[in-house]
């Protein structure tokens, strides 16, 4: 069970109030008609699927109903930060030290509350 900090409500709430909505920071091509089939297919269907730090959108569905971003580790499931739409993450896969990665993987048992 996640305990998620909604950056708009300014409070931690339980996972059931939220829905995950997939990869964050996707940009719709400015001129879809100018895209090749590859570019358009990549935009529609291809997603980052990292084993590690992931940036994703969540919606506070039964709260403020706003979308926001979450940086989360996909093995330990640890939520590293949440931030508003339009903002950039302060934690990325590159900024995470190797030591931290190792520690996260070794914590695989049990979902962090």
């Amino acid at each position: 069970m996640f305990y998620i900090y909604c950056p708009y409500c300014g409070e931690h709430r339980e996972e059931e109030e939220f829905h995950p909505k997939g990869q964050a920071h996707l940009e719709r091509p400015k001129e879809p008609e100018a895209c090749s089939d590859e570019e358009w297919g990549d935009y529609l269907f291809f997603r980052d699927n990292p084993r590690g730090v992931h940036h994703e959108m969540w919606v506070h569905a039964v709260g403020c109903r706003k979308f926001f971003n979450v940086t989360r580790h996909t093995v330990s499931y640890e939520i590293l930060e949440t931030y508003k739409m339009g903002e950039q993450p302060s934690i990325t896969a590159d900024s995470q030290s190797q030591a931290r990665e190792g520690a996260a993987v070794s914590q695989q048992e049990g979902v962090r509350a």
Binding site: E15, P20, N49, T74, V75, S76, Y77, Q108, V111
Partner: peptide
């Protein structure tokens, strides 16, 4: 579970 994960476990809800 709707979120991405490699941890071979999910959420209680």
């Amino acid at each position: 579970d709707g979120y991405n994960g490699y941890g071979q476990r999910g959420s209680y809800p």
